[in-house]
């Protein structure tokens, strides 16, 4: 089982689950069109409330990460280019949160900038490697 939740953490379980699914999509563990486990399955596997799984799925759907077809289940959505507006809002929010955190941690702007550049480079690198792996069909 790839997903793991820590009920005792201060982070709500549905948020933990959401983050992990997003990460799975971002790293290519979940590919476009792949079927997600049903709410019931995932709830039983993780021993968590089905409503918690539903809540995570609903938010992911709103964010365009997954799509739900009535009666068929949920699938990993195509990364849509058309949803630029929503993308921008979500990205703005995430960036702002990052900056607030940095400010609260008293990280000055230059340090933040340099850190960001480094992380971004590393991330690009991983994406390229991930794509190569996918092409050579290593994924099951």
């Amino acid at each position: 089982m790839w997903y793991y939740v820590d009920p005792q953490s201060g982070v709500p379980i549905y948020v933990q689950l959401k983050e992990q699914i997003k990460k799975a999509v971002a790293t290519g563990l979940l590919t476009e069109g792949e079927q997600m486990p049903s709410v019931r399955e995932l709830a039983l596997q993780l021993t968590i409330n089905p409503n918690t799984v539903s809540k995570a799925y609903q938010e992911l759907e709103r964010e365009g990460i997954i799509q739900t077809a009535r009666g068929l289940g949920s699938f990993v959505a195509k990364r849509q280019k058309g949803k630029e507006q929503e993308q921008k809002i979500a990205l703005d929010k995430a960036l702002e949160k990052l900056m607030i955190e940095a400010y609260q941690l008293s990280v000055d702007a230059d340090t933040l900038h340099n850190e960001f550049i480094d992380k971004l480079a590393a991330w690009k690198d991983r994406l390229v490697k991930g794509a190569q792996n996918n092409d050579s069909g290593n994924r099951t």
């Binding site: 939740v5 009920p7 019931r40 709830a43 039983l44 021993t47 409330n49 089905p50 918690t52």
Partner: peptide
Amino acid sequence: LRIILEEISVQGRTVFLSSHLLHDVERVAD
């Protein structure tokens, strides 16, 4: 907890779970 989920909760039925240990309910409670 898994049986409660599988046999009651997933079927849309209600569970009322009393405990003095938060640990018991935090995983499953709405």
